[in-house]
Every structure is written in C-alpha cells, then in structure tokens.
Computed example of a mutant assay.
Amino acid sequence: MTDFRFCFVASRADIATSACERLERRYGSHDPHDADVIVALGGDGFMLQTLHATEGLDAPVYGMNRGTVGFLMNQFSEEDLPERIAEAEVAAIHPLRMKALDTAGDTHTALAINEVSLLRMGPQAAKLKIGVDGRERMAELVCDGALVSTPAGSTAYNYSAHGPILPIGADILALTAISAYRPRRWRGALLPSHTTVRFDVLEHEKRGVAAVADSQEVRDVVRVEIHSEPAVTHRLMFDPGHGLEERLIREQFV
C-alpha cells in the first residue's frame, strides 16, 4: 500500500513549519482522526509531544528530523514518502504512569514515554526513601534526584545520569540515581517492568522536590508512585535498518 492518508504536524521551528507546508502541498493532509499515518516534523521533544497528543488514535507516528538530536526521528526527505512508509519498521512501546501527591494534598497523574524523574528544587540535596512493590528497599537516598526510565528512554536523561541502555524489547525498567551523595556511588537498579516504584520525599518541608513525567512537572511532591502502563501503546515507524533496537545497540558503540 502506497496510497496513504497523511497528517503532517510540525514544531514551531521555521525549518519544521516550512517543511510541513511543502509536504502538505505535495501529499495532501488529513485530520489526525482520519489519517493512516501521523508524520511529525521536529526533534525528539516534539516527537514526545506528538505521541502524547495522539495516544488515543490508531495511526502510528513517523518522525522526520527537523530539530536537534533526532534519536526518535528518521532522516528528512521530501521524496518517496509513501514508499518509505510502506517499508517502515514499527516499534511498539508502553509508557510509564506517574501518580504524584503534593504538599497541598492534591494527586496528579501523567504518562511518560521516556522517564519519570524526581529533582531537587533548591540548594539542598533531596532525601528519598525508595520502595519496590510495597517493600522498602532503601531507607534514605541523598541525591540531586532519581529517575525511572523505559527502554525507549534509556538513552536520554537516564544515560546522561550514567544509567544503563536497555534493549527495546526488554521487560525491564532502569532506576537511576542522579548525583548520589549517600550511599556514595550508588548507580541504581534494574527492575522488572511490572514493578511499582514508590518514592517518599523525606524532610520535604525544607528539601523541596519536583516530579517530572517527560515534560509534565509537579512541584513540591511528597510521594510519587511509578509503574509501566501496558494498556497504552505508542507505535513509532522507522526506516528499515534504523529501528529503535538498532539505534539502542549502535548508541553503545559510539
């Protein structure tokens, strides 16, 4: 099949919007609810926005890099788009679900495709208690923060924090410390994907912590629970030989 109905979406960058206009003139554009494929033009941040915005649709997302990094994107070209889509590989990924309780007693929920991170808000280090599936695993972690990452997000913030790169098909989550002070040099843990991780913020009155699910921030949290959400599936399309599995392997040999 090469007769696809496309929906083109673009970031606000001029290079992305101008590319979107040219592609719409060439291939036409449909409402996202009627499209066979969502084509996202931008960088990785815009791809995450697009995946969140289209999570209730059947159409997969094919990204073309008109941004900076482009780890989740394909190379940009205006030529042969229907043929590239017809030959593309599809990767199915599940996000994390964050449930955060703040100091006002309000509960916030959000989905994260890459990671959920807890970050100190002020000059003092955060103090976190870590529980896994209802069992306390670390009574006190003194740190700048900590995060839980999916395999798809393991090369992003997780990798910058010296966390492991996870194979895309692995049923594993990475729990990674950010600048751990005590226990010194603790790097984190690998956990089954069905695990529920709970962070309790100790001394939250003077050691404020924010929780961030991808780009959605909740400030002054006192408790955060994180688990994989298998009920939600995002489908990304990649050119043959350049899928997520290959990219994650290649990233380890740079």
Results as ranks from 00 to 15, higher is better:
residue 59 A to C: 11
residue 127 K to T: 11
residue 77 S to Q: 09
residue 111 L to R: 01
residue 57 L to H: 05
residue 58 D to Q: 06
residue 72 L to P: 07
residue 102 D to W: 09
residue 128 L to D: 01
residue 85 I to Q: 02
residue 85 I to P: 02
residue 105 G to I: 01
residue 68 T to P: 07
residue 65 N to P: 09
residue 66 R to M: 15
residue 71 F to W: 10
residue 94 H to E: 01
residue 116 V to I: 15
residue 133 D to E: 09
residue 132 V to N: 04
residue 72 L to Y: 15
residue 93 I to T: 11
residue 113 I to G: 08
residue 90 V to Q: 12
residue 88 A to K: 02
residue 106 D to T: 12
residue 112 A to Y: 06
residue 124 Q to K: 15
residue 101 L to T: 05
residue 132 V to K: 10
residue 121 M to D: 06
residue 120 R to T: 12
residue 128 L to A: 00
residue 99 K to A: 01
residue 126 A to T: 03
residue 118 L to S: 00
residue 82 P to E: 01
residue 75 Q to A: 09
residue 93 I to M: 13
residue 96 L to R: 05
residue 60 P to T: 09
residue 60 P to E: 10
residue 62 Y to Q: 14
residue 101 L to S: 03
residue 94 H to M: 06
residue 96 L to C: 08
residue 124 Q to W: 11
residue 119 L to P: 04
residue 106 D to R: 10
residue 74 N to Q: 06
residue 110 A to M: 05
residue 81 L to H: 01
residue 82 P to W: 03
residue 98 M to W: 08
residue 96 L to E: 09
residue 61 V to E: 07
residue 69 V to S: 11
residue 129 K to Y: 04
residue 91 A to R: 10
residue 98 M to Y: 07
residue 106 D to C: 14
residue 77 S to P: 11
residue 128 L to P: 00
residue 67 G to E: 10
residue 101 L to R: 02
residue 126 A to F: 03
residue 97 R to M: 06
residue 66 R to I: 14
residue 119 L to Y: 04
residue 64 M to S: 13
residue 96 L to I: 01
residue 95 P to N: 05
residue 92 A to I: 08
residue 95 P to Q: 01
residue 58 D to E: 03
residue 105 G to N: 04
residue 93 I to R: 14
residue 101 L to C: 03
residue 128 L to Q: 03
residue 84 R to V: 02
residue 86 A to S: 06
residue 106 D to G: 09
residue 65 N to I: 12
residue 66 R to Q: 15
residue 81 L to E: 03
residue 111 L to I: 05
residue 67 G to A: 09
residue 96 L to A: 07
residue 59 A to L: 12
residue 116 V to N: 08
residue 109 T to D: 00
residue 106 D to Y: 07
residue 130 I to V: 15
residue 69 V to C: 14
residue 63 G to T: 14
residue 74 N to P: 04
residue 89 E to S: 14
residue 95 P to I: 04
residue 77 S to A: 15
residue 120 R to I: 15
residue 61 V to I: 12
residue 79 E to D: 14
residue 85 I to T: 07
residue 128 L to W: 04
residue 124 Q to T: 15
residue 83 E to Q: 01
residue 97 R to D: 07
residue 61 V to T: 14
residue 115 E to T: 04
residue 62 Y to V: 08
residue 91 A to M: 08
residue 113 I to Q: 04
residue 129 K to N: 11
residue 95 P to K: 02
residue 70 G to S: 13
residue 110 A to D: 07
residue 86 A to V: 03
residue 61 V to P: 09
residue 65 N to T: 14
residue 74 N to S: 08
residue 112 A to T: 08
residue 87 E to P: 02
residue 72 L to I: 07
residue 115 E to P: 02
residue 64 M to T: 14
residue 59 A to D: 02
residue 108 H to N: 02
residue 99 K to L: 00
residue 66 R to T: 13
residue 57 L to W: 04
